[in-house]
């Protein structure tokens, strides 16, 4: 805006208008989109991984059962912060290693040189010369995968428990009607388990909403990063000097998180109601 050309002459409403529309603030507003996008992408993948993990644990094939058990237990057992540091770096280096082998097999220097991880420049992912947004999308993708893997393991355990919570009598009745094993699973067990899974899944969703500051570990700038960056006290080296305003920025974040919680609660209540229809089990009366 034109009037913002010389902020030191502004005061009152004009100062605020200019301050709240700086490039940095726009990045802050955009980061809300980043967080919502992460949730929108991760949540469905978490459900797929969770369902797959739960099915693997119930599988009749022993190695598959082992795999399901290993996935849920190892991932749940490793502290998030270590997982988030390790998985994306391992994936990134794995991808670059493969690209290095394919794209420049004639480079003889080792990839690991002391502390350094060096691949030829055309094997870099993304290329150093790629625009910054590609680097950001790539980092964001790695972050989404890491998030989905972690939360998928928790979802797998929840769904596994929910599948087992479906009363045995229901399954036996279905068998007595002559349904095959597969039909019993899909038509009776899976249909009914959602009600049991819902409290656990809603917990996971709430945790996922608030776990996004872990994104900054992976170089993705989320809302908490920007709130801290904008709220920190600014000297006159900055165009808009101000004292420590982190409290206000974090209060703003609190409003956002409370709104998200409120909206999620509404949605989950609705789903519970729907799923309880005609069920003489938990949740039906409430």
């Amino acid at each position: 805006m034109e009037m913002c050309a010389d902020p030191s002459t502004l005061d009152g409403i004009n100062w605020w208008t200019c301050y709240l529309t700086t490039g940095k603030h726009q990045a802050f507003y955009a980061s809300f989109g980043t967080v919502l996008l992460l949730l929108a992408i991760t949540a469905p993948v978490v459900m797929v991984l969770g369902f797959g993990g739960a099915m693997a644990r119930k599988s009749k094939i022993l190695p598959l059962r082992w795999f399901g058990l290993a996935y849920t237990n190892i991932v749940r057992g490793v502290p998030d912060i270590i997982f988030f540091l390790f998985v994306p770096i391992a994936m990134d280096q794995g991808i670059e290693y493969l690209r290095h082998q394919i794209k420049c097999p004639d480079v003889l220097e080792p990839i690991r040189q002391g502390n350094d991880f060096v691949v030829c420049s055309i094997a870099k992912m993304p290329l150093s010369s790629s625009p910054q947004w590609i680097h950001e999308v790539y980092g964001f993708s790695l972050a989404s995968i890491a998030f989905a893997l972690v939360f998928g393991a928790f979802a797998a355990n929840t769904l596994y428990g929910a599948m087992n919570a479906v009363p045995r009598a229901q399954l036996e009745t279905a068998e007595a009607f002559g349904m095959s094993e597969r039909q019993v699973f899909w038509r009776v067990q899976v249909k009914q388990m959602w009600l049991y899974a819902l409290p656990g899944l809603s917990n996971l969703w709430m945790i996922l909403i608030k776990a996004t500051p872990l994104l900054f570990l992976l170089g993705v700038e989320d809302i908490v990063y920007w709130a801290r960056e904008l709220g920190g006290s600014k000297t006159s080296k900055f165009t808009y000097p101000h004292p420590d305003w982190r409290l206000y920025y974090f209060a703003f974040l609190m409003v956002f998180y409370l709104l998200m919680t409120w909206a999620s609660e509404k949605v989950f209540n609705r789903i519970t109601k729907r799923l309880s229809h005609g069920q003489a089990t938990v949740g039906a009366g409430s």
Partner: peptide
């Protein structure tokens, strides 16, 4: 011309900081 990615912290004025336009400055 080779592309070099310059890594900085962006939180240590006046050495380096993110200015109000969201750019690295200092």
């Amino acid at each position: 011309a080779q592309t070099i990615r310059m890594g900085t912290e962006g939180a240590y004025p006046p050495y380096n900081f993110i200015n109000d336009d969201g750019e690295v400055d200092g």
